[in-house]
């Protein structure tokens, strides 16, 4: 299992497009993916779950990824979040 802390860097936070991009990406991997934030835990492949986090810029998340392709999945997900979902 991989656990990794990460910050939301894009200005608008986890709004519609980033949330959709995140679950779409996570859905491509077999590994389970959960996000912990301020005591909540949601399934990272569930857009409704991800949206209820309402993560704003600067929010700290902890990613939990477990499964056969966890390394690949972790790399891709971390990259997407760090790139600010390719937004400004």
């Amino acid at each position: 299992m991989i656990r990794k802390k990460i910050k939301i860097v894009n200005e608008a936070g986890l709004h519609a497009r980033p949330a959709a991009a995140l679950v779409k990406l996570a859905g491509k991997f077999d590994s389970d993916f959960y996000i912990h934030m301020y005591g909540y835990k949601v399934n990272g492949k569930s857009i409704l779950g991800v949206m209820t986090l309402a993560a704003e810029q600067g929010a700290e998340l902890e990613l939990e990824i477990e499964g056969p392709d966890e390394k690949k999945a972790a790399r891709a997900i971390v990259d997407l979040i760090n790139k600010g979902f390719n937004e400004s």
């Binding site: 519609a16 679950v23 779409k24 492949k45 569930s46 857009i47 409704l48 779950g49």
Partner: peptide
């Protein structure tokens, strides 16, 4: 388009 594609993801949501 972003909103609508987010809605598509909601409909597909595995947890839902």
């Amino acid at each position: 388009l972003n909103i609508i594609s987010a809605q598509v993801e909601m409909v597909r949501d595995p947890e839902l």
